[in-house]
Amino acid sequence: MASDRPVVVYPPDEDGGRRVRVEEKILGLAYSIRDVAAFLQEAGLQDWDEMDVVRSALIEWRGGGPEVWTH
């Protein structure tokens, strides 16, 4: 099933990194909420910070929410 949310944060890998995808493009590997915010800022959401990432309904968190960074 495709997500109706344009941003997907995948489950943590063995090192705690989580892939971040916007629409069909992988932006990189995040190791914290700050990293996710930085990727989204680079993607055009310049005003976003860590609290926007935690609260946003535009983000689908797979394998745990924004508090999960270990495998």
Score class of each variant (00 low, 15 high):
67 E>N: 10
25 K>M: 13
53 V>N: 00
54 V>D: 00
56 S>D: 07
32 S>W: 08
66 P>W: 15
4 D>M: 13
9 V>L: 05
6 P>F: 11
40 L>F: 06
27 L>G: 04
69 W>Q: 01
61 W>V: 04
54 V>Y: 05
31 Y>Q: 10
21 R>S: 02
2 A>I: 13
54 V>S: 07
69 W>D: 03
41 Q>P: 02
20 V>W: 05
45 L>C: 10
17 G>P: 00
53 V>C: 02
35 D>F: 01
30 A>V: 00
24 E>K: 12
14 E>T: 12
17 G>H: 15
53 V>Y: 05
58 L>P: 02
30 A>K: 07
7 V>I: 15
23 E>V: 10
13 D>H: 11
69 W>T: 01
15 D>Y: 12
56 S>Q: 03
3 S>M: 00
45 L>K: 13
33 I>N: 09
39 F>Q: 05
36 V>R: 09
16 G>W: 12
43 A>G: 04
48 W>E: 02
17 G>Y: 15
10 Y>T: 02
31 Y>I: 01
18 R>A: 01
24 E>C: 07
54 V>Q: 13
21 R>K: 14
26 I>A: 10
54 V>M: 11
32 S>N: 08
35 D>P: 03
44 G>E: 04
44 G>L: 06
39 F>M: 02
38 A>T: 09
69 W>S: 03
28 G>V: 03
9 V>Q: 08
62 R>H: 14
46 Q>C: 02
6 P>G: 04
54 V>W: 05
48 W>F: 14
13 D>V: 06
48 W>N: 05
10 Y>P: 00
39 F>A: 00
43 A>S: 14
